[in-house]
């Protein structure tokens, strides 16, 4: 019974990570790709970690701690990749809709503290 549960969690988590990989390949611009990479890997990791925590006899605390760190650092690194990509040249960050950030940066062009 326990094996079935851990197995299901592990496979589900792995599936999400695979889907994230497919998403990174299929989406056409950096931000869409990051949507796939950030969310699916976070929950995917959490599910695999949960399965591992149920399966092992010792070291559960470490696994759960790692999960907490993934949840804290994942979005933060995504934030900084996205922030840097917007300002870098030669990266495909095309948008279909509104671009409030572009309006903000255009308005503040030339001002220090960027």
């Amino acid at each position: 019974m326990m094996d079935a549960l851990t197995g299901t969690l592990a496979v589900l988590g792995a599936l999400l990570v695979v889907l994230a990989g497919v998403g990174v390949l299929r989406f056409r611009d950096l931000y869409s790709r990051m949507h796939a990479a950030t969310k699916a890997t976070t929950l995917g990791f959490a599910l695999v970690a949960l399965a591992a925590a149920l399966a092992v006899d010792a070291g559960r605390g470490k696994i759960l701690l790692a999960t907490v760190f993934i949840f804290v650092t994942g979005p933060a690194s995504a934030h900084f990749i996205g922030r840097a990509a917007y300002r870098a040249e030669g990266i495909d960050v095309r948008l279909d809709g509104p671009d409030d950030l572009g309006d903000l940066l255009d308005g503040a062009a030339g001002s220090p503290g960027e």
């Binding site: 999400l16 889907l19 994230a20 497919v22 998403g23 299929r26 989406f27 611009d29 931000y31 869409s32 949507h35 796939a36 969310k39 699916a40 929950l43 095309r94 948008l95 279909d96 809709g97 509104p98 671009d99 409030d100 950030l101 572009g102 903000l104």
Partner: peptide
């Protein structure tokens, strides 16, 4: 929910996508 949405967007056609940056 967010994972379901991303999974669906990965698998299904892309007509639901209209990306943008909102303040």
């Amino acid at each position: 929910e967010s994972n379901v949405v991303v999974a669906r967007t990965v698998v299904a056609p892309r007509d639901r996508i209209r990306t943008g940056i909102v303040a």
